[in-house]
Design a binder for these strands. Sequence first.
DNA 1: TTGAAAGCGTTACCAG
DNA 2: CTGGTAACGCTTTCAA
Lengths: 343, 343
Amino acid sequence: MPIINQSEIARKLKVSRATVSKALKGDSDISDEMKQRVRDLADKLNYIPHYHARGLHSRKSMTIGVVVPDISNSFFSYAVDGIMDVAVRSGYHIILAVSREKSEIEKKNILNLLSMRVDGLLIAVSKESPDIQIYQKVKISDVPLIFFDRVLEGQGSGFVGIDDRGAAKKLIDFVIRCGYRNIGHLAGSSLVRIGRDRLSGYLDSLRDHGLPVRREWIVEGGFERKDGISGFEKIWMGRDKPEVVFAANDQIALGAYDAIREKGLKIPDDIGVVAFGHHDFAKIPSPCMTIINVDPYDLGLQAMEMMLQCIRGEKGCEKKVLIDSEIEIGESLKVPGKPEPHA
Amino acid sequence: MPIINQSEIARKLKVSRATVSKALKGDSDISDEMKQRVRDLADKLNYIPHYHARGLHSRKSMTIGVVVPDISNSFFSYAVDGIMDVAVRSGYHIILAVSREKSEIEKKNILNLLSMRVDGLLIAVSKESPDIQIYQKVKISDVPLIFFDRVLEGQGSGFVGIDDRGAAKKLIDFVIRCGYRNIGHLAGSSLVRIGRDRLSGYLDSLRDHGLPVRREWIVEGGFERKDGISGFEKIWMGRDKPEVVFAANDQIALGAYDAIREKGLKIPDDIGVVAFGHHDFAKIPSPCMTIINVDPYDLGLQAMEMMLQCIRGEKGCEKKVLIDSEIEIGESLKVPGKPEPHA
DNA sequence: TTGAAAGCGTTACCAG
DNA sequence: CTGGTAACGCTTTCAA
């Protein structure tokens, strides 16, 4: 039996559709008795309101479209978690779309979402060079758009992201405070923003502490595990070895671990490892990683909160917000005494 | 500028709404010239069809509601990934809801999803004892319902899950083929199905190989990391120590690692560790885990495929499907020679 | 306190 | 080939 509608109830009760509609939503100008009768029957017939029919009229879908490049990436699944928490609390639903890092799919997703008349769009853009055109379409359609984690510059939309540069600096500051002066960097690629920013933070810290930059200890490449392996090998080939390496992300760090084990080196006695990562990653066993812990959940939270502001027409929707990160100390770095990471 | 509608186009072109509607969808009885004019203007005015208005008429939303207990759990995010891949390929959209393992929230989610007139419901039920009533409602509303990973028994719906018992047996068979005869089990709780099933598989394997069951090597508890720690300690307190421990999930395995390291034992020389896990987990460094690799992506894939069958009215929608798992060998177990795991 | 009618954006069925 | 009209499920305004 398909779900019944208000007309059905009205017919059985021999009243008008309007009466039923009002009774169901507790409108003050319906008698209590009528309300009861309507509600009882609705219950009995398993009536369930039609969300979209209602939305047609109110021109609101109470729905937010979210586009992520990859939901099986825990960074984004945590972010979605944060988004959902805020959304649910405010009565919004989430339609999730995944772009698989393809701008073509991203474009289709956005179009579909607009077609579903979402009340807002939360997007982490794909790595592929994006189709500006679709973003133009979004803009002229007046649907609030907020980027998270990855921006498309020059769209004049809100953005919530990680303060990569600041976080990298914070982490290297800490390593230096622990007494190390020779720190290498497996930097990923400077073709992408996070690569550049994390490298900048690393350089900022060295500069602030008056330490020399040793180009042979900075290795560029990709962000994959294999790049961590080859990168570490390249650094270790040199005459001087660093005491600590800073991996630009978790995959690179895992690769470095592989290379380190392969060479028979001991962590953290022979070489310390610190990395960008988030939560889960710090928990890898034997030994645990010291990371600068970015919090994707918080990122999602704040992105959705900015979206709500945006929808309510408050100001501050075109702000750029950069989220701070915390150091999580693991056994991959020898930490003398008990230094306060945030001192 | 809000998104315009067909009427707007019709007015500007001085034709009827019907004409515009047909022209836009390429109906055969509209002149090519008219079609072109309509499409050009639609394009220029940034027309985007209204998905739900269309759905109102067709009584289809081309939307599937998915409820998971926790999207930041990588098991479910992989499953959602699989669901989305199949969904997108068939023109469906996904509305994602998270129950946080609370049946109260699960109920609300389901109701909302029904309210949005999803064409189907894909649910992994929360751990909390569920509200049967809402599932009754689903059933009489004729919306196809398929459970994945976790079932609510006795609802007569389709189910796609992991073959936990078979997988556990497969893993222990392998361990025994590697030459081990003393195998402990950190079993989690037998109050939940996966605990029972994995224990059963373990026992099946011992029985098949004529090995004795040693009760002191089977420790029940929870599925958390701390349970792994305490469980391993309990096993290790005994006079006889096993050569290998089998952890019922990844968290327990991590806890066992903690305890093993704490005791100064070496993996895999002093003690081997095998566990239930999936993909990512096998990659933890130093040393890598030997796991029975369940594939949540495949689970999502198959669940959504069953859903499509269900929607198309094909048979086989009330089937129970159990998914097979593969062994992934890591350095947490000494494997003599190069035995074929699937021999 | 209740009802009639118009409207939300679209499609389908018939007429012309 | 094109247009009028009703319908999809619901809300809202205005009358009764």
